[in-house]
Write a protein that binds this DNA or RNA. Structure first.
Lengths: 208, 208
DNA sequence: CTGTAGGTATACAGGTCTGTGAAGTCAATT
DNA sequence: AATTGACTTCACAGACCTGTATACCTACAG
């Protein structure tokens, strides 16, 4: 029992600190490079407490990715809520959220990194990483549909293209250290969207 | 001495086997998840030999990435050599090389993965990963220039966009398991290139 | 007053990690 | 005949890994 199912804010103070410290260390040093001893020590907590709260390192990794996933989705949906109604602009919202999300980081995307570190398809952490990208792709698809794209191959292909641009921008930014990567990817995304959508300005609420 | 500087084909049979095995294991299981004991055993070689040939695990990691980098660059340049002279098609060659390069893999890009696993900026392996992406971006820039793009911001931004599409396609393919990701990214790249280049068909050998 | 939850401290089991040391084998070159 | 390169076997250091066990402390709720 213990953790995993609820995963809510029902964390004890110690567990909260453990998760915060673990998140920081997992992201910056890598999941496999950080041991539970370090996490416990850095949290001001004994290893016993860590295992009482989280059960295993794998669970802690999953909790880290889950929390990160929720933060990311909340960030995007909040920006969508406050975004202007222009449908094309809304499609680009995930790109607008990126600079703040990536901050100064040279560490790239925590989910892609986790994917790289967890080859086991059954690892709960890997599943969360996959779910995050799947969610983002679905979000692009939905936003495109709202923007008046006809259902069909075009929407699917365009959603994939936007996802690729998005993920690739993070890599270009982190690996090649290209500060303009996100803005460039956003511009490319805009071009693709306006170039593919049928009503090129899509002002009227679609043809349905 | 020993390894690192020459890095050529001057490998002893044992070293060759070690490098082959290590490459396979590092790619599929992750660098930090594979120990030298496993590599030595799987190579039919003692740990002593491994250290005599490569000096350290970090060196072996660097050798792995170096070899992979060379294979990738050779693949792309060979395809460029055999490619038709159409300048736009030549820009897309790295995308055409992807399906064969990624094969059935669900493990994504070995360099991005290494980047995720090696947070230390001084690690020789990380440098190689960065160099690979930097090279690809420069290649896109050069191919765009040959395609008649005017020097300036456009070329730089477009090169970044192509790199992002390229890297993102690998992630979409590996993480989301989207088989069409590479083709979609290629189509997007084509759209961006033809939409941005001045001479929209760029048939004449540029304006210089 | 008696549990229970959330801790603490310490020790340890059983393993794996990278890396080295000492001594020796075998084949090819010089 | 001597040397060198490639390699083996075995042992070991010293650190780190995940995970558990024993025992105690404190605050609070029924």
């Amino acid at each position: 029992m213990s953790t995993g199912t609820h995963s809510e804010q029902s964390l004890t103070p110690g567990a909260r600190r453990i998760l915060d410290v673990a998140s920081e260390l997992f992201y910056w040093r890598g999941i496999n490079a950080v041991g539970v001893d370090t996490i416990a020590a850095e949290s001001g907590v004994t290893k016993r407490t860590l295992y009482d709260r989280f059960g295993s390192k794998d669970n802690l990794v999953a909790a880290y990715l889950n929390a990160r996933d929720r933060r990311w989705r909340d960030t995007v949906t909040a920006r969508l809520r406050d975004a202007p109604p222009d449908p094309v602009a809304r499609v680009l919202v995930p790109f607008d959220a990126l600079p703040e999300w990536l901050a100064p980081s040279t560490r790239g995307c925590g989910f892609s990194n986790a994917f790289a570190e967890l080859p086991d398809a059954d690892h709960p952490g890997r599943r969360i990483a996959v779910a995050e990208k799947t969610w983002l792709r679905a979000l692009f698809r939905d936003l495109l549909t709202e923007a008046g794209a006809a259902d069909g191959n075009d929407v699917e292909a365009l959603a994939t293209q936007l996802l690729s641009l998005h993920e690739g921008a993070i890599i270009s930014y982190a690996v090649v250290n290209d500060d303009s990567a996100v803005a460039a990817a956003r511009a490319a995304a805009k071009m693709l969207v306006t170039g593919t959508l049928p009503g090129h300005l899509a002002d009227q609420p679609s043809s349905r």
